[in-house]
Computed example of a mutant assay.
Amino acid sequence: MPRECALYVVATPIGNLGDITLRAIETLKEADVIAAEDMRVTRKILSHIGVSKQLISYREHNEEKQAKTIISLIRQGKNVALVSDAGTPGISDPGFRVVKQAQEEGVRVVSIPGPSALIASLSISGLPTDSFLFLGFPPRKAGQKKNFFRMVEAYEYTVIVYESPFRVKNTLEVIRETLGERRVFVARELTKKFEETFYGTAAEAVSWIGGKDAIKGEFVILIGKNNL
């Protein structure tokens, strides 16, 4: 429960609203203001847990400006909860600049941990979990994407990336082209009704994704190390 003025970085469900933690619920109930990436998404979560709060919006394009507003609210004696659309703020989502500003100004920052697509995927992937590297979203441009995955070739640990449904097929093809027959694990729509996963070689993953009539949902791709 928030007891002193602070920025509370609150993880929210990545799909299934039942995954919200008791501590997240308590924090959202006790916060004076909730800073949300998308207020429509956050209102759905708040409605699910029976909470009505003052919301302010922060997005990638205005995050630096809104960081100052959020810090000002905390200086005025308010507790602010920071949430993104899904998962943890700042992890391939806006939030980093707000937290950075708070740290630089000596404002207390508290983590309220919870669902994470990359950790959830890793835990069920069958790939080594003792050491791994999360690289966010790969570059969109063809040349940059190939160089990105060529860099991965030297890594001796599991590599994790996120990808959109519009680019996942091409990304898997580039992984096959640059990394050969590495083991991969692909997760789609984790914790949701149409959750789907795939484990196999990069070439098999390309065939799997190519056989779908429609590609929807956000993807997590894990790449095994070279000698697996």
Rank of each mutant, 00 (worst) to 15 (best):
Y58W: 09
I25Q: 13
I124N: 14
P128Y: 14
A24R: 10
G224R: 03
R75L: 05
I45N: 06
I221M: 06
A11T: 03
S84T: 15
M39K: 10
A202D: 04
T158Y: 01
R183I: 01
E177W: 02
V161I: 15
M39H: 01
I74G: 03
V152Q: 02
Y157T: 15
K68H: 14
P115T: 07
L122T: 11
V220M: 09
D130P: 10
A202W: 01
L179F: 11
P94N: 07
F198W: 05
I70C: 13
H48L: 13
S111K: 07
L73I: 01
V168P: 09
P13Q: 05
H48V: 12
R43T: 04
P94E: 09
S84E: 13
S207E: 15
E105F: 08
G180P: 00
F166N: 14
G95D: 02
E30N: 14
I45V: 15
F198C: 05
A214S: 15
E60Y: 02
L46S: 04
D19P: 00
F194A: 08
K216Y: 04
V107H: 05
A31P: 00
D130V: 12
T178Y: 00
E181S: 14
T69C: 11
R188Q: 15
I20D: 13
I223W: 04
R40Q: 06
L17Q: 03
S57V: 06
R140G: 09
L73F: 09
K29T: 11
T27P: 02
V159F: 07
H48M: 13
K169W: 03
G77V: 02
G200P: 06
S121Y: 08
G211R: 07
K192T: 02
R23L: 11
F148D: 00
G200Q: 06
N79H: 04
S72W: 10
T158F: 02
T178N: 02
P165L: 04
R40P: 00
Q76V: 02
S131M: 11
E195I: 08
F149T: 01
V152R: 01
F166I: 12
E30S: 15
V98K: 10
R188L: 10
I70S: 11
Q76P: 06
D93K: 07
T88I: 00
P89E: 00
I112C: 09
R108W: 03
A35D: 07
I14N: 09
L118Q: 10
P113D: 08
F198T: 09
E177L: 01
E177R: 03
K44C: 04
E37Y: 03
F137G: 00
A81G: 02
Y58I: 09
